[in-house]
């Protein structure tokens, strides 16, 4: 069981998209004026689409400590402040969304297993609907998906810190959706991608447990 904290900006839907289940126990942390949550009880910190990156910027040191302890960060938003170690999201309107295509680059943990990449590219035949901008990834991070211009769109970083970071270029994901689409296929594909990420974290927790007991 993963204990996860989800940062909430008070937006419609967050509570609906992160519902506790057999794999993950979710706690919603509402952002307040002096937001300074205790992250020690959690294995996973989720920063969903529509988050407050001023508040997260003020938590930079705490997130670094959280990762140093071997924990996991999911960020599915555009972090314009520099609170994520080694990786930076960049907004850009230099490229046209009509030209956006994605391809899998490095996927050692099979995060894209069972996920039709075309459903990340197209929605109702419109391309470039899911993510925005790109990630300047840490040099040793895995770029799971890159776009037409080889810009990282999904990044897995197990090297920059002692923990694990899975980052999207503002592509929304959630345990039970969190996807701005009424296309059931796209909804299912992104749900599958999120579950593959959860599977990886569960595997890591299991490996860590076995390592300690040996």
């Amino acid at each position: 069981m993963i204990k996860a904290a989800v940062v909430s900006n008070g937006l419609h839907g967050i509570h609906k998209y992160f519902v506790s289940n057999k794999n993950v126990e979710y706690t919603i942390l509402e952002v307040t004026k002096n937001f300074d949550p205790d992250l020690k009880p959690y294995d996973l910190l989720v920063v969903p689409n529509g988050s407050d990156h001023i508040a997260m910027g003020r938590l930079k040191a705490k997130v670094a400590d959280f990762l140093k302890e071997g924990n996991t960060l999911f960020c599915f938003d555009g972090w314009f402040t520099n609170w994520i170690p080694g990786n930076q999201w960049i907004m850009s309107n230099e490229k046209k969304t009509i030209d956006i295509r994605y391809k899998v680059k490095t996927d050692r943990h099979n995060l894209m297993e069972g996920v039709d990449i075309n459903l990340l590219i197209y929605n109702h035949n419109i391309s470039g609907w899911w993510a925005c901008g790109y990630i300047e990834a840490a040099p040793e991070a895995d770029v799971i998906i890159e776009d037409t211009w080889q810009r990282p769109i999904i990044v897995l970083d197990e090297k920059t810190t002692n923990g694990t970071m899975i980052l999207t270029a503002s592509g929304p994901l959630g345990d039970s959706g969190a996807i701005p689409t009424d296309d059931e296929n796209s909804y299912a594909a992104l749900g599958k991608l999120y579950q593959n990420m959860i599977r990886l974290i569960l595997q890591k927790k299991e490996n860590e447990k076995n390592r300690v007991t040996v």
């Binding site: 910027g57 314009f80 402040t81 520099n82 930076q88 960049i90 907004m91």
Partner: peptide, 13 residues
């Protein structure tokens, strides 16, 4: 034109 300067991203707070 609406431009998006790269230097606006990665700021400290």
């Amino acid at each position: 034109n609406f431009e998006v300067p790269k230097e606006n991203y990665g700021i400290a707070v």
